[in-house]
Design a protein around this nucleic acid. Structure first.
Lengths: 213, 213
DNA sequence: AGCATGCCTTATGTATACAGTAGGTCGCAC
DNA sequence: GTGCGACCTACTGTATACATAAGGCATGCT
């Protein structure tokens, strides 16, 4: 039996990330507790965690709402990602598991997100890459910051669906980053990360501007 | 009437930061709730927040302890600080309130931590500097990361008390950083921050090695 | 004598009852 | 008719009762 608080957190996190609970949605304790089939106590715990994550904010002293997420937030998110991920890439190149990143570089080389079915494989690869980065940095302060931005990045992905061309380019960019880390080239790893984030942000902003002309 | 959960969090935070609750201390819910004069419900909220802060960890499925904080953690903390604060300094130089940082540079110039009484004034100045940085970056993701490292930095300060010479040097370093930001010199601000963090870490490590020979 | 197993204690996890406050609405007065 | 005020409702904040599981100790078996 998993804990009820965990289930409530996972459910709300998923719903906020996918947009099922849009920004501004009021999260009443009794209402959400009834909906998720848990008591108020574990639900409160879930809400507190979501507040700590920045996905829920206190609109007024006693009303919690799903936090907003607009273009300005996306820009801020990527500004933070630059700081966190460039540093992480640099550190990984200095003291990461070179064999793992060599394998990742090869896997990114094989990946072909042109196939619809392999998009999932692509995201699985990204997840493995992120895990390798976390293991390499071995720094709870940095890892925690990375975890937070990834949580919010999921919302950005939802807002702006990647197209095939962008996914293919992203794979290529990740291959370069992984290869640079495997070669112990910290500068290249950091700058390749910067370039990747630039393209990723540009793609998202373009997708958004096309979606709402 | 402030909320009980807030009081419990503030009390435990203070006690952990000052070392009154040393690392490894088991935090039983009923025990702490009774000690702090609150019920288990708000106490649990406080513990969850401390876990999110990284000041409390789950040792086993059902026992919470005050997290450890050793030399390795301090090194990791400063590694993260480099990433976060250099970026923050760079951003502040680009779009901060130049007048405020000009004032701060002047205030750091006047500060004289040689006086015992003015040590508090020094820390108040640091607090104002941090607030100015937060306002300048205006990025919740980065600000949140900065808040976390400051929370842990308080523990490091407790472990290694600064001496007068170090405080004087720190004031001078902050004056340079503030002046660089006021001049809009992002590169100097970032590098001066790097230098400051290097000296601060070195002073802490020296103090620790002297304390435990 | 040592180890394993089962029970018991005590903790956390959960649910619910109780209290207080904030916000809304209705009514009255100007 | 509009504005102010009081009451009322319904929510959060808090406390406590109940369920459940984990860990320790004791006892019995090998």
């Amino acid at each position: 039996m998993v804990r009820a608080g965990e289930r409530a957190y996972a459910a709300l996190l998923e719903e906020i990330q996918t947009g099922s609970l849009p920004p501004g949605t009021v999260l009443g304790e009794v209402e959400q507790a009834a909906r998720l089939g848990v008591s108020r106590t574990p639900l409160r715990e879930a809400l507190r965690r979501l507040i700590a994550d920045g996905l829920v904010v206190q609109q007024s002293p006693r009303v919690l709402v799903v936090s907003g997420f607009d273009v300005a937030d996306i820009r801020a998110l990527f500004e933070a990602r630059r700081a966190f991920e460039e540093t992480a890439a640099r550190i990984a190149a200095s003291r990461g598991d070179l064999a793992e990143f060599r394998e990742l570089a090869a896997a990114f080389g094989d990946a072909d997100p042109g196939d619809d079915a392999s998009v999932d494989a692509y995201y699985a690869l990204i997840e493995r890459f992120d895990a390798a980065i976390d293991a390499a940095v071995a720094n709870p302060y940095l890892t925690s910051a990375l975890r937070t931005v990834r949580t919010h990045l999921a919302r950005a992905r939802r807002l702006a669906r990647d197209n095939d061309a962008r996914l293919r380019a992203s794979v290529s960019e990740h291959r370069l980053i992984a290869a640079a880390i495997a070669d112990g080239d910290a500068e290249l790893a950091a700058h390749a990360t910067h370039v990747h984030l630039h393209h990723a942000l540009a793609a998202i902003l373009t997708s958004l501007s096309e979606g709402t002309p």
